[in-house]
Design a protein around this nucleic acid. Structure first.
Lengths: 339, 339
DNA sequence: GTGAAAGCGCTAACAG
DNA sequence: CTGTTAGCGCTTTCAC
């Protein structure tokens, strides 16, 4: 494979000039053109190892997730890839799923081989050692949906989303609104169970209602779990509305209601959070999170920090978009309503 | 950050010895121990750039997919990561989704920066130029679910799976069995529409039935599309069973049947292919593909080729596992049956 | 704006 | 089994 010396020879310049021309540094237009032509003719591509060794930059970005087989994370990844690939960066995935040795491997070795220029970490809860390891890297980090000291952060206001969702239900006239999701006592890999629970509770209390009594039902963030919780809940003490901590939970609730012969939204309103791929199909009213957009933003912020290493970390909180569909209505099913 | 010379100094040996000890090459046990201790004390980690430049190996594996936001591909990825991370390899994702420039970027540049030791490509249909680019790399390639000349391949026999699924239905006594999926005329990113269609058709014909008449209904590989197709199909000329080209399509069919007041499996049997995460929840009978297992196998085969570059490419066809659940029964719903 | 030359940190012969 | 010695292919001062 052709190397930089071949290109230099063909273009009639030095290797230093080739390097500059290819990296957009100072070089006359004429020289740049010659170099580019020579490189194209030879099918030359920079060796990332050599370039990385000499410059300290690798054009690789790490993306760290607790697990990748979830809608939210794959959508983040799609967004991240779309901006990073187009900027000539590769993304290396660090999937912490699986045993702890996999996790230790990532922190102890993979991350430190200096093979990345920066890191995007999503919904990761770090140990003290891990935070130290990350800081020792001296590379920019942006965190999505979770706080990492010193890192730029992008997130959504989960408590606010939960409050909005609950208020939507309240404004329709519901007073018996159950919450299905992870509670404050549930350690969640998503780091958001608490906030959504709190948002629901505070909206209930602000309306003079006792949330805790109306019912908190625990569920994991998936359809079967939402289904099981709703089955139990609806058999128990039927509320007129459910606020689901995620759309997958919400879809499970809708399915459970159907199986019990209840009509949604006439007999039961359901609102979720996410705007999952399937939510439109199920007519689920929800607060859209747009993870692909979060991923794109995170990637841009990381790129900005790479260009400007001195800059202070930012904190961007995204505003969710309310998507009213057919799963919410006034109690009794009178009229479709909006917040 | 400490470099190899620091470790050598502390251990009282040469850098070459450090390198050997760390890479599991010839070194006395005593020396290795000293080196490991010194490395641990200094928090030393190999620089992948320097190591890669000197050795030509990077300990990075590429994983190429047409898009990543699908159950099948994320499960593949999970399987791949689990074996590769534990072997000290990082995986870099090449997501071809999006515009062609993203694709050109990957083939024209990312892949060729010599930043990977090997590639796993899933369900990728390559152009002639792309195949040439891949071969020029001279790195081992394993393809999952798609043929790439000269590459080791892991796949499932799609036609066989379709035949088995159809025969299951036939053995239960069904004769009017519709196929919902991509047909032979549909260009499929999954490269499997044809085979599944053919498998269904040949099973029907072998049973003396005319598949084409019983009905082929087109659908993409997702729930809403399966739902829409089933709605149309069931309104038209009702079969007693549906063979769905994927579980997501099958789930859509089940949902459509329910909405039409049909009981599954009494009024309609449905069988799919995949064993999607949600299939157990919906009671869908299916042929399990185990993508995580396919990913692990692909990773192991790639590792084997890395260890033994001379070996001829293999072709491993996996045997699907039949999972009979509650979505299939004799026509009329008499008795639950098995194949 | 461009060339010469000195590394970046490691591995791979080659001796011994 | 271990040390010495060249590079791997690029980037980056430093002159010019």
């Amino acid at each position: 494979m052709a190397d930089i010396a071949d290109v230099a020879r063909l273009a009639g310049v030095s290797t230093a000039t080739v390097s500059r021309a290819l990296n957009g540094k100072t070089a006359s237009a004429a020289t740049r053109e010659k170099v580019l032509a020579a490189a194209a003719e030879l099918g030359y591509v920079i060796s990332s190892n050599a370039s990385g060794l000499a410059s300290g930059r690798t054009r690789h970005i790490g993306f760290m997730v607790p697990f990748i087989d979830r809608w939210f994370f794959t959508d983040l990844l799609t967004g991240i890839e779309s901006v990073l690939l187009s900027q000539g960066y590769d993304v290396t995935l660090y999937d912490l799923q699986g045993n702890d040795s996999q996790r230790d491997q990532v922190f102890g070795s993979s991350l430190r081989r200096a093979s990345i220029d920066g890191l995007i970490a999503a919904s990761i809860e770090l140990t003290g050692d891990e935070i130290r390891a990350l800081r020792a890297l001296g590379k920019p980090v942006v965190s999505i949906g979770g706080y990492i000291e010193g890192a730029t952060a992008v997130d959504v206001d989960n408590a606010r989303m939960a409050t909005l969702a609950t208020e939507h239900l309240l404004s329709l006239g519901h007073t018996r609104i159950a919450y299905v999701g992870a509670g404050r006592t549930i350690a969640s890999a998503f780091q958001l169970g608490d906030a959504r629970y709190d948002g629901w509770l505070s909206a209930m209390r602000a309306a003079g209602l006792d949330g805790e009594e109306s019912g908190f039902w625990e569920a994991d963030f998936d359809i079967p779990s939402g289904y099981a919780a709703a089955k139990a809940l609806l058999a128990h003490d039927r509320p007129t509305a459910i606020f689901a901590a995620s759309d997958e939970i919400g879809i499970g609730c809708i399915l459970a209601a159907r199986d019990l012969g209840l009509r949604v939204p006439d007999d039961l309103s359901v609102v979720g959070i996410d705007d999952h791929k399937l939510s439109a199909f199920f007519g689920l009213t929800t607060l859209a999170q747009d993870p692909a957009g979060q991923g794109r933003l995170a990637a841009h912020l990381l790129l900005a920090q790479l260009d400007n290493p001195g800059a202070a970390p930012e904190h961007r909180t995204l505003t969710p978009r309310f998507v009213v569909r057919s799963s919410t209505a006034r109690p009794g099913g009178a009229v479709h309503g909006t917040a």
